[in-house]
Design a protein around this nucleic acid. Structure first.
Length: 574
RNA sequence: GCGCCGCUAGCUCAGCUGGAUAGAGCAACGCCCUUCUAAGGCGUGGGUCAGGGGUUCGAAUCCCUUGCGGCGUGCCA
């Protein structure tokens, strides 16, 4: 497996080109895998383009790292791709032939499908999965940003990706907004009050909570309504249909605004009764046990997961049974190799248990299951709590941020056509929000400061868009075609080229480790280096105009792919 | 109680599958627009990488331990 990924990678990355070259000469010192592992980028470019630490060989060869570095240097002395070598304090610093780097990297990175992979893997990505009783909030936005981005990253890396969503569209929480609407809604519709339809539903969920404080048995009433729903009582079912319709209509608007969609949607209401047969079959095979009170349980003690109830004494299923069924169903539908669940880290136990149960059941598709566990979003004041009204609503956040972008645009272009202002302000708003949500290491909890997210300077989404727009602007104004003929590239240019060269490795890591944040922070570094180049090196008026145009073009292509993989739309002008 | 995760500059975060002087952004201060987009660039100050111990030629990174914070441990979803 490792060798396989290596070979795929080797086609496109400068690092792997070099590793191939080194390996030919250094078989007695390093295996291919060793080289992949050990070859590193030095902390600054006075120390070369790559470095080979020789400490690990010291024991084996019973020589000092310094001596080893020197003798390796001798071995590599005649390789044309290497300009010179420096053995310093146990490291062998490698300075590559600049022309070789430039030609190789530009040739690769000017291709539209730079670093694109090809593997034969069917992968399902499930994400978002909202309840239909209230509108989407900031937590969903992080989920969606990660889900959409990892789907694109996997697809670009060659996976055949199916994006799915399970809508939790039934249950007592849904009945709560239904009950409160029935009691206080007076038959009103969202259109009447000019409220986005999912917000309209959510308002009744809030109203329920208020009422429940005044009326002690209000919660019970919701439970009763659930029973009526399950019994299929017409009035309740049609109320449920109507309100779900509102919720879905609203969600779809948000999905479209945010720029995400699903290939296959699942609905809890359609599957929640299934799965029981799987459990009973497991019971018959003695994989599960019947407890004295009649409940069906699975003993996961030896995996350190305790005992998990699957069927209650009254025979009804607990939540995980539905997920067991859904995994089965997904495999029926798509015959997947991998099935990724983008779900918060609070559900790690749930997915460990799910996978283990499927393994016990002997499901062939159990091994492909992977929980992409991401960290919770908190506000500077602490956690978001719907009861205390501290939840940041998704639509509001996008719109408020867009409003600020609008103001910034007016400052710069007071005459701009409204439609153009609209287009740009939404793009800027989404870039700001998505980047903010993606840049923190995916698995870590993050604090989302709305005031910081709407800032447009520094380490932000708009900075990335701005860098792209600057590159586009140069290319638009260029009158000559670029050519990739050699020149003596200066430090700013070399840094940019070398950063562009890293893209395939970053993409590879991001996709195999399922961590979009790696790509996000690379993208920022890349832009920083570009902006430094932009400041240092005039392009159009330079004697190296043609070569620099090639470089700008290569940057623009790379950043454009990267932003697309983050789910961020670019602007040609900003 | 047990389990998992986190703790890096005033704040928000990179760096964590061990490697060379620990990096960004924001905030503060100073400089740079008759030159391809100043939503930009450059500079200055700011660190006991939570504390302690260990492994190693080498530890922010791995192990143990203490503290603080979060989450999980539902016959909720």
């Amino acid at each position: 497996m490792k060798i396989l990924t290596f070979i795929i990678n080797a086609e496109v990355s400068m690092k792997n080109e070099l590793i191939q070259i080194l390996h030919k000469e250094l078989t007695e010192y390093f295996t291919l895998d060793d080289l992949v592992k050990v070859l590193e980028t030095p902390p600054n470019d006075e120390l070369g383009d790559y470095a080979l630490p020789c400490f690990s060989l010291a024991k084996k060869l019973r020589k000092s790292p310094k001596v080893i570095a020197e003798s390796i240097a001798d071995k590599l002395a005649t390789i044309p791709e290497i300009a010179h070598l420096q053995a310093v304090s146990g490291y062998l610093n490698i300075f590559l032939n600049k022309d070789w780097i430039i030609n190789l990297v530009l040739a690769q990175s000017l291709e539209q499908d730079y670093a694109k992979g090809k593997i034969d893997t069917k992968t399902i990505v499930e994400y978002c999965s909202p309840n239909t009783n209230k509108p989407l909030h900031l937590g969903h936005l992080r989920n969606m940003a990660i889900g959409e981005s990892i789907s694109r990253i996997l697809k670009y890396s060659g996976h055949d990706v199916v994006k799915t969503c399970i809508f939790n569209d039934r249950g007592v929480h849904i009945c709560k907004s239904m009950l409160s609407y029935q009691d206080f809604g007076k038959g009103e519709k969202p259109e009447d009050k000019k409220i986005k339809s999912d917000h309209f539903v959510g308002d009744y969920y809030v109203k329920f909570a208020l009422q429940a404080k005044l009326e002690p048995n209000y919660e019970d009433k919701a439970l009763q309504m659930l029973e009526q729903w399950e019994a299929g009582e017409q009035e309740i079912v049609s109320l449920w249909r109507k309100m779900n319709e509102w919720a879905f209509t609203g969600f779809n608007e948000t999905f479209q605004l945010f720029g995400t969609n699903f290939d296959k949607e699942y609905y809890e209401s359609q599957i929640f009764r299934n799965g029981k047969e799987i459990i009973l079959a497991g019971l018959a095979k003695n994989i599960f046990q019947k407890r004295s009170d009649g409940a069906v349980v699975v003993d996961l003690e030896k995996y350190g997961l305790g005992e998990k109830v699957l069927l209650r004494p009254n025979g009804t299923s607990v939540y995980i049974v539905q997920d067991i069924y859904l995994a089965y169903l997904k495999n029926q539908d798509f015959c997947y190799d991998k099935s990724i669940y983008v779900v918060g880290n609070e559900q790690e136990y749930h997915f460990t248990v799910l996978k283990q149960i499927l393994k016990l059941l002997g499901a062939s598709y159990a091994d492909g299951i992977q929980h992409l566990s991401y960290g919770m979003v908190e506000l500077p004041e602490g956690k978001m709590k719907s009861r205390e009204g501290t939840v940041v609503d998704a639509d509001d956040l996008i719109n408020n941020t867009a409003e600020l972008a609008r103001e910034e645009i007016f400052k710069r272009y007071p005459e701009m056509a409204i439609s153009e202002v609209e287009k740009r302000s939404i793009a800027i708003s989404l870039a700001a929000i998505k980047y903010q949500l993606l840049k923190t290491e995916t698995s870590k909890n993050m604090i989302f400061n709305p005031k910081e997210a709407i800032r447009f300077e520094g380490d932000t989404g708009p900075y990335l868009l701005y860098s792209y727009a600057r590159a586009s602007s140069i290319l638009r104004k260029a009158e000559v075609e670029y050519e990739t003929k050699p020149w003596t590239a200066n430090q700013s240019e070399m840094r940019l080229i070398k950063k562009i060269a890293q893209f395939p490795e970053i993409l590879h890591d991001s996709s195999t480790r399922l961590v979009p944040s790696l790509l996000a922070s690379y993208t920022y570094d890349l832009c920083q280096i570009f902006n430094h180049f932009f400041h240092d090196c005039p392009v159009l008026k330079s004697e190296f105009a043609s070569q620099r145009l090639a470089l700008v073009s290569s940057f623009r292509n790379t950043i454009s792919i990267a932003l697309n993989l983050l789910g961020i739309d670019t602007l040609e002008e900003m």
